[in-house]
Amino acid sequence: MSYYERRGGDRGSGRIQGSGGRGGHVLRGRSGLAPRGPLGVNSRPSARTIAKSFSRTKDMTWRPDLFSDSMAASGIETGTKLYISNLDYGVSNEDIKELFSEVGHLKRFAVHYDGYGRPNGTAEVVFTRRSDAIAALKRYNNVLLDGKAMKIEVIGNDLGLPMTPRINVVGASNGRATRTVVMTPEFSQRGRGSSSRPLSNRFNNRGGFQAGRGRGQFQSWGRGRGQFQSRGRGRAQFQGRGRGRKPEKTADELDKDLESYHAEAMKTD
């Protein structure tokens, strides 16, 4: 278990540095433009203050334990484990690594052996990202390897595969909507989730549609990411059910929709 804790700390450090490198934007109040300074609340545009803010960011980078504690408290799981069975006895660690590294970054991989040092036909692989683990599950489950079909399943709960939330919103969109969440089984033929649905609870989402204390718009100048640089992470590749209407649109159309929608939202506020 200490292995995972260490890994969590490393990931936290990476995130801190990423944030520092990107440079922060300071907002004073809720609207209007504010001077910029990383993680500074009331910084001014003088070079000395900006330098101090940057040094403050550097101080943050040397506290990975803070982030590991925060991640542990949040219950963020580091890595997604796949359990592979029905393997041929000739499959080695390198074979497993070579096969599953094609899908994504592996945090750990191991072929299981019995007490006499002989492989028992099972292995485990831990992916850094859950989307890679699910992609590997779809790609390699029941695929022949050295003449035997691999059986792959995801280990652990709360991984989104056995039960996935489905959200129902009843009512008008003027803030009186009621949000109901039910857990529906997905990939039930592979996972070990139960088919029974737990009782759902209604949640009055009155404040959800108003953006808390309001919203503002800001523009950034000076250093920062390129204007058209988009930062994309791995996509969650769940297969949704055929319920409801799911409009299929291209990324450009979605961008236009979001832009027009956002313009409308700004007008209403």
Binding site: G160, T164, P165, R166, I167, N168, V169, V170, G171, T184, G232, R233, R235, A236, F238, Q239, G240, R241, R243, G244, K246, A251, L254, D255, L258
Partner: peptide
């Protein structure tokens, strides 16, 4: 009334 999976929400966030 609308209904959606969390995967739809994930796709929205990734978009």
């Amino acid at each position: 009334n609308i209904t959606y999976d969390i995967s739809d929400l994930y796709n929205f966030i990734d978009g």
